Amino acid sequence: MKSESGQNIVLGDVEVIRVVEWQAAFAPARGLIPESGADVWKTNEAWLAPDHWEPDSDRAVVALQSWVLRSGGRTVLVDTGVGNGRERPGSPHFHHSQGDFLGRLARAGVRPEDVDIVVNTHVHADHVGWNTVGADGGWEPAFPNAQYLIPAADDFHFGPDNAYGGGRQEDDRFVYEDSIAPVHRAGQAVLWEGTHRVDENLTLESAPGHTPGSSVLRLASGSDRAVFVGDLLHSPVQILTPSCSSCFCLDPEQASKSRRRILERAATEGELLVPAHFGGGGAVEIRREGDGFAPVRWAAHGSR
């Protein structure tokens, strides 16, 4: 897996720091995006490869990354990766993973105690894992001074009061118990629904489908706009064909509706689109094209 250093851009009064844990060929292209046809990948090979697609193996390339936003005098961390030493028997990529996420944050100039707000765009294993760290045989919040903003619908859906389908999957139980419940016990969890104003530059907005509480984070500062879309998009192919959901979407139809709504606004308002798992530039401006959209310009991240 190719490791990368922290990278940053500035949007209005907000510094955006990209922290990449890894980037690699992750899954068969049409396994990750089941309804995408082989032709859409092949036709766009010139720009999908090598950052988003590995043609020889026909595997989608994804990045595992988080975003640090310095906004209004506070440090906001958007999604927290996989975490170390987690029981994830249903997810081979994440099971007992060992990484240097906190070291990468430190090299980007962010200590755990510096983080004021943690945003979990949704409650999946690769977005909440570093919410906590091991302590005395259990788990405690990794960011002791932070509020953790967690979508209420996901907290209910994956928590002990509800079932995942006919019953929670084993990995869902582990994720909640090691990465969400300890934050509640520490009194640092803030549940929200609908919309939630983070500060003068940042607003959370519900965008269900990938999970019941899946959300996006909008940035508006000066004339600059961006939207951090979490897992509404796993591959740029979904920009071209917004109806195509990933294999991980719990409600693919609802996810498609949310995706198109977010893409329409991004194209109309010139928002920089910032998905959780895009490799390469990691973020992109888009325009309308036919029944879908098309990339216009990838973000020019500079190395820190």
Rank of each mutant, 00 (worst) to 15 (best):
T80P: 07
G81E: 09
V82E: 07
V82N: 12
V82W: 15
V82A: 15
G83C: 13
N84K: 15
N84A: 12
N84V: 07
G85R: 14
G85K: 15
R86L: 10
R86I: 03
R86Y: 12
R86T: 01
R86C: 05
E87T: 11
R88Y: 12
P89D: 06
G90E: 15
G90A: 14
S91L: 15
S91G: 10
S91N: 15
P92E: 12
H93E: 00
H93M: 11
F94Y: 12
F94D: 05
H96R: 09
S97N: 09
Q98S: 14
G99R: 12
D100S: 14
F101H: 11
F101C: 04
F101D: 02
G103A: 07
G103L: 07
R104K: 14
R107K: 10
A108S: 12
A108P: 05
G109L: 14
V110W: 10
V110I: 09
R111S: 05
R111K: 09
R111M: 11
P112F: 13
P112A: 13
P112I: 11
D114P: 03
V115D: 01
V115R: 13
V115L: 11
D116P: 06
D116Q: 10
D116G: 10
I117F: 09
V118H: 07
V119Y: 06
V119P: 01
N120I: 02
N120V: 03
N120H: 05
T121P: 03
H122A: 04
V123M: 06
V123P: 00
H124P: 00
H124Y: 03
H124A: 02
A125I: 03
A125Q: 04
D126Y: 10
D126A: 13
D126F: 11
H127M: 02
V128E: 01
N131V: 00
N131K: 04
N131Y: 07
T132C: 10
V133Q: 00
V133Y: 01
G134L: 03
G134D: 00
A135Y: 05
A135N: 01
D136T: 00
D136E: 01
